[in-house]
C-alpha cells in the first residue's frame, strides 16, 4: 500500500497524543490534583496539539477536505466515521478534565471520573483507528490479530515517553528505583518490541491465502500476459506500492534499534532523568518507521489481477 505521509503523520501524532492524554487522565485519577497548573497545561496541551495536528493532517489525505463534516454521519457502519465522532467527542471531555485537574475549576471530586472518561475516549478513538485497518480483509497484513494491539501499544508507549519528558521538565519525575512511571514505560516498550517481533515473524512465515487462480478463476496455470493499460493507474499507484519491500528488513532493524535505545534510556532515567530526552524522540521515530512499514509492506489482493501470483 502507498504510505501516504498525511496518514502516517496522523496515526503516529494522534496516537502519541491520545496515549499522553489517556495516561494523564489515569495518573490524575490515581493522584488527584496536578502539582501545578503548568504541568497539567503542558500534558493536556501537548496531547491536544498532537491530536489536532494529526487530525488536520489526515484531512490532507482527502480529495475534498471541505466536505469533512459528512464523515461524521455513517458511524453505524464505518470505522472511519466512528473514529471521527469519538475523536471530536474527546475534546470537550479532555478540556473539562484539564479544568478540574489543573485546579482552574475547583472540583476535586470530578478529577477521577473525568480522568477515566478522558482515558476511555482516547482508548476508543485509537481502537477505531486500528479497526479501519483491521477490517480490511483485502489486505492480509492488516486483517489480523496484531493490528489492534499494535496501534494501542504504540499510542501508550509513545504517550508514556512524552509524559516522562514533561514530568522531567516540570521536576515531577521521581528519582530512584521506586519510579513507577519509568517502570510502566519500560513494560510498554517491551510489549511493543515483543508484539512487533511476533508480527514481523508472522508476516514472513504466513502462507498466502489468495491466488491469481482464484482471482481470475482460470486455474493454477494462469499468468499475466498483457497489461490492460500502458501507464500506471490509480490502482497500481495506491495498492501496488513496492518501493519499501526491498528495504523492509533494514527498516525493521532500524525500528527495533530505536525501540532498544528507548528501552535503555528509560531504564537509566530514574538515575539520569534527562535520558528521557533520548527515549521520547526515539519512541516517536520508531513509531513513524513502524507505521511507514505497516503501509509499505502491506500487499493488496487486487495485485493478483496485475501479475502477482499470491497475496
Amino acid at each position: 500500500m502507498n504510505p501516504a505521509y498525511s496518514v502516517i503523520l496522523f496515526t503516529t501524532a494522534s496516537g502519541a497524543g491520545y496515549g499522553l492524554l489517556a495516561l494523564s487522565g489515569l495518573a490524575a485519577a490515581g493522584h488527584g490534583p496536578a502539582s501545578s497548573i503548568g504541568f497539567a497545561l503542558a500534558c493536556v496541551g501537548v496531547a491536544l496539539a498532537l491530536i489536532t495536528t494529526g487530525l488536520l493532517s489526515s484531512t490532507a489525505h482527502l480529495g475534498r477536505p471541505e466536505r469533512f463534516l459528512r464523515a461524521f454521519s455513517q458511524w453505524r457502519s464505518s470505522w472511519l466515521s466512528r473514529e471521527g465522532v469519538v475523536a471530536v467527542a474527546t475534546y470537550p471531555v479532555a478540556l473539562a478534565f484539564l479544568a478540574v485537574w489543573s485546579g482552574l475549576v475547583e472540583a476535586p471530586a470530578l478529577i477521577a471520573p473525568l480522568g477515566i472518561a478522558t482515558a476511555a475516549l482516547c482508548a476508543v478513538t485509537v481502537y477505531c483507528t486500528s479497526m479501519i485497518y483491521r477490517q480490511l480483509t483485502t489486505i492480509p497484513a492488516w486483517a489480523n490479530r496484531f493490528t489492534v494491539p499494535g496501534y494501542l501499544l504504540f499510542a501508550l508507549a509513545t504517550g508514556a515517553g512524552l509524559l516522562s519528558f514533561i514530568s522531567v521538565v516540570f521536576g515531577r519525575f521521581q528519582a530512584g528505583a521506586g519510579n513507577f512511571q519509568a517502570f510502566l514505560t519500560l513494560i510498554l516498550i517491551f510489549a511493543v518490541i515483543v508484539l512487533k517481533w511476533l508480527y514481523w515473524r508472522w508476516l514472513r512465515r504466513r502462507k498466502p491465502e489468495h491466488s491469481m487462480a482464484a482471482a481470475t478463476g482460470l486455474g493454477p496455470g494462469v499468468r499475466q500476459w498483457e497489461v490492460p493499460h500502458t501507464a500506471r493507474n490509480f490502482i497500481m499507484k495506491e495498492m501496488g506500492y513496492s518501493v519499501a519491500r526491498a528495504h523492509a528488513r533494514r527498516l525493521q532493524q532500524i525500528a527495533m534499534l530505536l525501540l532498544d535505545v528507548a528501552f535503555i534510556a528509560t531504564f537509566i532515567s530514574p538515575k539520569f532523568p534527562w535520558a528521557v530526552a533520548v527515549s521520547a524522540p526515539a519512541l516517536l521515530l520508531a513509531a513513524w518507521t513502524e507505521r511507514w512499514l505497516f503501509f509499505a509492506q502491506a500487499e493488496h489482493v487486487v495485485q493478483l489481477f496485475y501479475g502477482q501470483e499470491k497475496v
Binding site: M1, H61, L62, G63, R64, P65, R67, F68, R70, A71, L80, I132, Q135, L136, T137, T138, I139, H210, A215, N233, F234, I235, E238, M239, H300, V301, V302, F305, Y306
Partner: peptide, 17 residues
C-alpha cells in the same frame, strides 16, 4: 464523496478508481 479512498482499499477487485 470526500475522496478518502478507503472504499478503494476495501475492494478486492480494483473496481474503484
Amino acid at each position: 464523496c470526500i475522496g478518502c479512498k478507503l472504499c478503494s482499499w476495501a475492494c478486492p477487485y480494483g473496481a474503484r478508481e
